[in-house]
Design a protein around this nucleic acid. Sequence first.
DNA 1: TACACTTGCACCATCGAAGGTGCATATTGC
DNA 2: GCAATATGCACCTTCGATGGTGCAAGTGTA
Lengths: 341, 341
Amino acid sequence: MTDGRSDKRPTIYDLAKLTNTSASTVGAVLNGSWKKRRISQKLADQIRKVAIEQGYSPNMQARALRTERSNIIGMIVPMYDNRYFGALAEAFEQRARDRGLFPIVTCTRRDPNLEIEAAQSMLAYRVDNIVCTGATDPDRIADLCAAHGVETLNVDLPGTRAPSIISDNYQAAVELTKDIISRLPSGCAGNDSDIVFIGGREEDHNTGERIRGFKDAHEEVGARIAEAYIRPCGYAAHKAERSLDEFVNKMGGLPKGIFINSTISLEGIVNWFQQNDITGLETVALGCFDWDPYAALLGNKTSMVRQNVPVMMDLLFEFLEDPEKRKAGVTQVLPEVIRRS
Amino acid sequence: MTDGRSDKRPTIYDLAKLTNTSASTVGAVLNGSWKKRRISQKLADQIRKVAIEQGYSPNMQARALRTERSNIIGMIVPMYDNRYFGALAEAFEQRARDRGLFPIVTCTRRDPNLEIEAAQSMLAYRVDNIVCTGATDPDRIADLCAAHGVETLNVDLPGTRAPSIISDNYQAAVELTKDIISRLPSGCAGNDSDIVFIGGREEDHNTGERIRGFKDAHEEVGARIAEAYIRPCGYAAHKAERSLDEFVNKMGGLPKGIFINSTISLEGIVNWFQQNDITGLETVALGCFDWDPYAALLGNKTSMVRQNVPVMMDLLFEFLEDPEKRKAGVTQVLPEVIRRS
DNA sequence: TACACTTGCACCATCGAAGGTGCATATTGC
DNA sequence: GCAATATGCACCTTCGATGGTGCAAGTGTA
């Protein structure tokens, strides 16, 4: 090169030569510790000028190696196929950047092995923290990270090995169920219920809590629920579709209401209606524990639960920054129930 | 600690002491170059055993510092608020992992400054490549990266400084428009059209191509389009909503069809119908250049364009791996038009 | 003028891994 | 039985940034 700029990225050593100073001086100026090191204002200005001219950017790998702190913060999410996790990732990234951290979000498709693999990669790159969102096995990740001296935090699904920030699934499920009940044809509420719960995994904490809320809301109005009405058939759309189909075949008709445990399951439910009984979409009272702008418009009767992403992410960073607060076990955040009549 | 395991992560030096060998031997064994270095099978096995016992994980920062290759591959996406970018991110991550790379996806909210900031962060962490997906200004990012010796690739929106993989927006727009025309009340096709194009940004390459396809499809059936029918009002939902509202006020009624330029814009359109004329959703022929499982069900008449994510991502990694192929300028991939009658 | 401080910077080891090189010991060929 | 080669591993520098330490020159005090 003839313009004095190398084709390689300049290092503090290059800048030191260009300014007739030393690497430690350049380093101190560019990382902000120069006052402590009593570098003169004039020299600092000059070095900064040359650094900009040369397009210097500190090698974070080298810095991390030396300081034992990467400023990388990782987040594991299950999927990008719904608004909730998308919003979580977006809010997470924004807050991380605001704090000068480098956010790394990766989706692990609800695959426990992939979760571990992703966590191991993050650990290899020496992330400072890992946030497990909706992880199928947060404790396993927490243990793995603990062995590496890395603290984790759980979001959406609670774990026992790390502080957890989750939605108040029980309370929101109670409210959503009451809302569905209130929209049943008159005369139904108070009698034995005809609302099906579809979707989710029984082992899931959240699904368990939602079923508990679903049951308690029924109990409050004196209605009973038969076993066949609780159908945690998994999250995939086609599973919900099949589950509803089985229910209808078994019971000989549609239920009066459906509590759907996620937008993904809702996809299957709507598919079923499209295939089998499109008018049902207008007559059955739908409630979905999740939020999606289009889904909210479907059937014109779908109430939805929208989890409070901003508050959850604010709490997350509070916990990350304050070891005292971090001791808390499970912190619940109340979601919003968006009612449609 | 009493069990011989330090509370710090073990390094190759720790393992060398534990096995009475040297750091270079341990390093060679654990990074696979041990045969080349003529380490005996027996010693290699022993070192690997101890490494596993100690929970060793190589410090990728140190490795990257030494080898000048981080194995990190970055991707910038605008938003996680639609399925297209979610699917792109997911497919990208999967393919990167399959190749032993560490994928880093970040969303920049269609903010040109945030795009640059994110790219700079990635460069500071010495990513090997950056993939710009739907970037507002891919050339600016490409130039920045080029100054750091990092190659970029564009996806979804083309740039002039790097190879680009995009959808064939023109062809798909022609097909989508024809589909809308075919669903107009009989007698309309062939006359001057009554289909509005709403959403997107006029400066966007994709929006331009779609408008071109929209126009050509009209021309083919001998229909003309008045200026007021082309409304690239931006992407945000409320902008599309307002644009449709303005159109209806100005023209004194609904159009017979709407070509909506993204699911986000569709959100605004559906909102408008909800607020103003819910029956319109059933009578107006809708086509949306984007895909969403719920949106596809709306109005029961919405045809959608689903971009071919797997093929685009396969091409991306082909280009990344083969410098020859990388020379190509813009590669177009034909999306699928999902018709609903 | 001598001594104690302060100012302003350079020198150097270090973080963990990689890879060039060197040097014993073991094996082969003649 | 001896040189030539192969085998198996250790030593040492390097990547870029950080921060402890040392040291000259400048300033203040008695």
